[in-house]
Amino acid sequence: MDLIQPTSHIIPDPDKRAGFRAWLPYQSTEPFCEPDAHLRANNLSIAYHDLQVLRNVTLEINRGCITALVGPSGCGKTSFLMSLNRLTDLIPGCQVSGHLQMNELDILAPTTDLLQLRRTVGMIFQKPTVFPFSIRKNLELPLREHGTHDRTLLQSTIENVLQQVGLWHEVKDRLDHPAQALSGGQQQRLCLARALVLTPDVLLLDEPCSALDPISSGIIEDLIASLQGSYTILIVTHNLAQARRIADHVAVFWSLEGVGQLVEHGSAQQIFESPKEELTAAYISGIRG
């Protein structure tokens, strides 16, 4: 198994992380997807400059499962993801209301420690966003920021995580080369590695494959599938076949009168085989959206 080892090295005091990490995925022998809500959104609404783009989303995301968010462009999927690690705070004019909970933690509370939250909730974006320095430094930076300075530990963590994303053999001889020289697919895997290096509980993946060629896309997809059970994963994808292949659950978003809403949520099997809503049925059969 290439999974990185338990995480006590990053923050020595486990109590400090209690609210964020009530449950450590790696301690279970078999990865699994539990019927136990890890994230809960309750009446979540998002607006940009008073323009509402998401209304009253109520949704539970199960621990260790892969949940695919699907729906047409502009229905607020990215906005939803970004509210989960409060990146929405960084977007001018963005207001999030309602209730968001991760384990016991109230994500939207003003007192929430954002730095902690964001290291517990990793995110990667549609476009690979490696930082303009070496591969090694890309991976070391978040570790150092969160208190790991021991060189051997850094090295072994980097190796582990690169192994995990299948990049180790491709880059082990050029760890000190600029990360931007990697191919798009490699960069995206590096971004994934960079998120994993902090051993998050939740991974938010915003169309991670859509800027990539089919081969790289396939590699990333397999990678995500392999993370199932170890992390709670939310993946936005426009590729319904992909959602069908890897997701345990699917949430269908739709833009009704310009405002994004959650139309249906259920197990992948149920959504794809016996959708309850007409819109869902139309969307998955490719008629609309």
């Binding site: 960084l90 920021e145 998120a195």
Partner: peptide, 25 residues
């Protein structure tokens, strides 16, 4: 780019670190 800032924030980097390691260079 906005993405660089967002991904720095998404990694839980503090503002001063983001400024020192990503913005200033």
């Amino acid at each position: 780019s906005r993405e660089q800032r967002l991904s720095a924030a998404a990694l839980g980097l503090s503002k001063s670190t983001t400024i020192r390691t990503i913005l200033l260079p």
